[in-house]
Simulated assay, not measured.
Amino acid sequence: MTGRIFSIFWMVFMLFFAIPFPMLLYYNIRSESMPNPIENDPLISLALVTLSILLWVTLLIGYYYKWVLVNFAIKRNIERLNTTGIPREAKILAATKIPDTYPGCDTYNLKIQFKNLVDSEITHQTAVNDAKPYERRYEAGKRVSILIDPEVKRIPYFIFASTEVSIRKMTILLASLGWLVLLSAVAAYYIYAYQTESEGMGWRFMSIGHPLLICPAVLLFYRFLLAFIAGKLSGKPSEKFLIKFKGIATEAKLLAARQTGTYINEQPMIEFELEFRDNHYQKHQVSIKKVIDLLALDITKQEYISIFYLKDNPQRVAFAQDLNEINGEF
């Protein structure tokens, strides 16, 4: 609960500096010193207008995909997995019921254990909606059939063999309406800005500091920044899922562990130099950077660390502990 409140706080905080703050700054400065649009180069102003439109279009396309289209993509991928997925049998290690999630079915958080695509045993945490709770299929100790994407390229990377998928029309409708409201707000702001600032001289009022340009630029910057930080801290999620579902488990010898000088939330980033032999008994040396909790620094003193590596590219590795902690998809 605390983590969710913290996330909401930072979301509102970042949103303030992306939209209200640039507007307050721009219009306060403009009211104190009215600019003379005739002094601006019309070609530069037109270029800035075009750039702002491109930024908004990029942003809105991303939102539409995330809010609407991704649901159809997931549905299509689930239907594909039902025919092309690689079957595996998974043992349920733990099952926790989530109360009042979806009407008409029970929802469980599961911890399951199964062999991946190269027969290395892995554990995974996921959620499942059970439309037939009276069959009691999802209880600790029981076994369930799953289907894994042979390429591990598209979400979901695996499904339960009994999965049935449908699109909630009301959810899609509300998401589409929300997107249309956002689109209308952006279009209305262009009209408002033109009517109140053009002074009969077209788009010459457009400047590098105008909210029409700054707001989408900041929102896109946030998207790339968060993706970059997440990639630096824990690697790309798709990369980790690929190694987890197609990687070979082994023990790597710890050659060295040293701090990089980078700290995230006062926790040091450690660079590990590891050595291991692949399934062909070829020796490999790799380096992995990882942010370590201060209470878990004992890992730097271990002689061997469990890892997974890709058979086709042994330089792509991940700590087994990190892979066990990722969840979802599905």
Rank of each mutant, 00 (worst) to 15 (best):
G200N: 06
V218N: 11
L220A: 10
K169R: 13
E197H: 06
Y190Q: 04
E197C: 03
S176L: 14
R168N: 15
G200C: 09
I229T: 05
L180K: 02
I148P: 01
L174K: 13
G209S: 11
I159M: 11
L225M: 14
G141D: 06
P237E: 04
F221Q: 09
G178S: 07
A188Y: 14
K240V: 02
V218F: 14
L242Y: 07
I148W: 05
G200R: 02
L220S: 12
L220D: 10
V144G: 08
L226F: 15
A249I: 00
G178V: 04
G178H: 04
L219P: 07
F160S: 01
V165G: 03
E197N: 09
I191V: 12
G235W: 03
I172F: 06
K169C: 01
G209R: 05
L173M: 13
S234M: 09
Q195E: 06
I146S: 04
R204N: 02
R223V: 12
L180R: 02
E135L: 14
S238F: 01
M201Y: 08
K244I: 04
I159P: 11
M201Q: 09
L213F: 15
I159F: 08
I146Y: 05
S166W: 13
V152G: 09
A227G: 10
F158P: 02
A193K: 00
S238H: 05
K142D: 09
I155G: 01
Y138G: 00
L225R: 08
T171N: 14
R136M: 05
Y157N: 13
L147T: 03
